[in-house]
């Protein structure tokens, strides 16, 4: 069987795995690297459950062969919290009940992460349109939108505080 070495830096940790070229990134993350936070939903790129960040941009890991991202930096849900401390997005999802079954949550969090990091001043409507890339079957999106907006505001305030402290 034709195998290829693929080097990935996932959540800051670099590993090399030997995989068949057909192996999907989501399966490499889950099976070879043991990171089962990234989920499989539709396996044809529609639902967004498998969303991860590749070099800071969200992608579908179910329609990406791992060989296609050889050398890339990947971020997954497991990289969000700092130890005991939840990422503001995670904390706001918890507070606003932006999740019910939790299955779409990792993909939704990573997509939200890209949205907020790309635009700290993101509006409610932009969040709603932005997360339309990812399906959620439980929440009807309302509390997810609330949570992302709250996290954005919090992160902006935190960063203003940090900047202010430095100045």
């Amino acid at each position: 069987m034709d195998r290829h070495d693929v080097t990935l830096t996932v959540n800051g940790r670099t590993s090399t795995v030997s995989v068949e070229p057909r192996k999907l990134l989501v399966d490499v993350l889950r099976e070879d690297l043991g990171l089962t936070g990234t989920h499989v939903g539709c396996e044809h790129g529609v639902c967004g459950t498998c969303t991860v960040l590749r070099d800071g941009e969200s992608i579908r890991s179910c329609t990406t062969f791992a060989v296609q991202v050889d050398g890339a930096e990947i971020r997954t849900v497991e990289g969000l919290a700092k130890g005991a401390e939840l990422h503001p997005l995670q904390d706001e999802f918890w507070d606003k009940q932006g999740l019910q079954c939790g299955y779409c949550t990792p993909g939704m969090l990573m997509r939200a992460c890209e949205i907020i990091e790309g635009n700290p001043d993101v509006t409610h409507d932009q969040v709603r349109e932005g997360i339309a890339s990812n399906l959620c079957r439980c929440t009807g999106y309302q509390f997810i939108t609330e949570a992302v907006c709250a996290a954005a505001a919090r992160m902006k305030a935190d960063s203003a505080e940090t900047t202010g402290a430095q100045a």
């Binding site: 889950r30 089962t36 936070g37 989920h39 919290a81 939840l86 995670q90 999802f93 939790g102 299955y103």
Partner: peptide
Amino acid sequence: SIRRVEDPKFLRGRGGYIGDMT
């Protein structure tokens, strides 16, 4: 409207769904 006690594991990607079991 307390925070749900189920949520932290799901938020951290440690839901332990059937596909996660090996």
